[in-house]
Design a protein around this nucleic acid. Structure first.
Lengths: 340, 340
DNA sequence: CTGAAAGCGCTTACAG
DNA sequence: CTGAAAGCGCTTACAG
């Protein structure tokens, strides 16, 4: 049923030129005379010819495919980043091939081989760590990798994150300025650099203010775990008067728990602060005070890094950290002099 | 820097067999003796050989890539579907290549050509319509297309949706049973079949109950437009006592507007019902009554349709409509005898 | 079951 | 600028 595919050779014949000429006309930087270009374009459009990306990829070694590994799309931060990433790459003639990390079966290794099988030009690993063997594998395959929203000790990998330590510190200063005295922390997944850095900065900020954490529970970056963590943290009478939750996604579950299961007022009884500033944080039902992770700039840097390595033949990995502001909303008591 | 790529020929030499033999060992259905298989596997693993998917695609004509066109990932329904789709396809050895429809520049045509350039084995168009020229183009290229969450008159295209007409009708019956007398409707984008069908069913259900719509505004499936629509609908004193919003995404904005900008109680002053049953609808802050679109089953059918057309050589397009239940929560007055 | 040969649709030195 | 030729890494009839 399907119409025969038009090849460059057929276009060449119709245009009365060689296959090479056709190829050159369709290759951005190549040289072809105006006359040849016109003949080829005419024949091509009459025939409905378009170059086969895969064939081109085979010989040129450039597939124009970027592999994206993601663990889960439930946390709004990721679909948002994915949309921006995909758009930015599309503008440059690249496209995103998705690989779900499928953390439960721990199959990230297999996934990586599959990615490489597609001869991708680069890999973005979002919220996923990569063993040093795997990163070595990518290096020897000549495929640049950018860690997105996660950093690792492995100095051969590029990484783009927000300034998580500084962000955690800002939250501490804000909460302390608000006069909070019993401060708790609900952690994300312990293996994540974002979790570690936010907590590090938060604790440092508290300490600098002469304060210390009175409670800490792990929420694992999951809503159900975060709810359970909040339940544990708030079971006694002397519960915290403020809680910093390691990301917005969990913070929504914590706020819901406090308000609807415990009947507490936010922020009158408890201040809640999150991290990310996903869209929902700005919805009036939550009005979540949070530290913004500038997804747009993080994506811009990710794409720039990738392009420099793929097209610019840059070899040294980059570590980029983008500072994001504290966004003050109604979920936390606002200190005098701090504005929304 | 990058290590030389291992080819099937090198594996063949090391194993002391032909290139064909290597190919057969790595081709699922092909025949190779146990002895050959063992020699090849050994040589391959020693060399770290993996077949090049792109080269394989070139000659076999099967890229194992499915192109996914999406307009926007902001409505939670889509990232959720994308995650399920990607997982289901990955299990079958396929992967999703993303194309953002970029509706503002109306470039869906260009996007389609780009998709075809990658020699995809199939296309899923989520929340995006397709002109008949484009669908003809895909047909002549022999690439099956499945419309996801949208249907069209074009009978050559497969489409998977939920039972939107029936769903709209259920909402009408529910609202009427709840004793509502002034019922409004906030529409989605007028060009969408989902919008049209939900409204159709809703109006039919009202009519069957002897009622009629007292207000209708267009929200365009966008939160900002939905908020504006709600503002218009509720400006007078005789505002509706119930409003059906064409999807959850807009319903959240409507609820927020009613509660936080107008100080109305939901459901005491106004009942609100949405459509989709995205995760957030179940969060206590919203507790949105809504009609579920069974994303899991919709994805399952989408994948099955695609596989039958790609691998089973099925030729007739399929139109699948999956029924989803009304999920009753606190955002709307609950009629006696109806349970949550 | 197995191998030699042709070919998938393109690009890229190499000469001219 | 242009064309003939080789080759990217594989699979697939075709013989054996």
């Amino acid at each position: 049923m399907s119409a025969p595919k038009i090849t460059s050779l057929e276009v060449a014949r119709r245009a009365g030129v060689s296959q090479s000429a056709v190829s050159r006309v369709f290759t951005p930087g190549a040289s072809a005379s105006a006359k040849t270009t016109e003949k080829v374009r005419k024949a091509a459009s009459e025939l409905g010819y378009r170059p086969n990306t895969l064939a081109r990829a085979m010989v040129s070694g450039k597939s124009r495919i970027i592999g994206l590994v993601v663990a889960y799309l439930e946390n709004q931060f990721y679909p948002d980043a994915l949309e921006r990433l995909s758009n930015a790459l599309q503008e440059r003639g690249y496209h995103v091939l998705i690989f779900m990390a499928n953390t439960q079966s721990g199959t990230i290794d297999n996934v990586l081989e599959e990615i490489l099988d597609y001869q991708v030009d680069g890999i973005v690993a979002a919220s996923v760590a990569m063993s040093s063997e795997l990163s070595a594998r990518c290096r020897s395959a000549g495929v640049p990798v950018v860690l997105f929203n996660r950093s690792q000790d492995d100095k051969t990998l590029s990484a783009v994150t927000s300034a998580n330590v500084a962000g955690g510190r800002k939250v501490a200063e804000f909460l302390l300025a608000g006069g909070h005295e019993r401060i708790g922390y609900i952690a994300g997944w312990e293996g994540a650099s974002t979790q570690r850095d936010r907590e590090l900065g938060f604790r440092a900020g508290l300490e600098a203010g002469g304060a210390t954490l009175i409670a800490r529970e792990a929420g694992n970056f999951r809503m159900d775990n975060a709810r359970a963590a909040a339940a544990r943290m708030f079971e006694g009478p002397d519960h915290p008067d403020a809680v910093f939750v390691a990301n917005d996604h969990m913070a929504f579950a914590v706020m819901d728990y406090l308000r609807y299961e415990r009947g507490l007022q936010v922020p009158d009884d408890v201040s809640v602060v999150g991290y990310d500033d996903v869209t929902t944080a700005g919805w009036p039902a939550y009005g979540l005070t949070t530290v913004r992770q500038p997804a747009n700039r993080m994506v811009t840097e990710t794409v720039a890094t990738l392009m420099d390595q793929i097209e610019g033949h840059e070899t040294s990995p980059r570590r980029i950290e983008i500072d994001g502001p504290l966004i003050i909303r109604q979920s936390a008591r606002i200190p005098k002099g701090w504005s929304t």
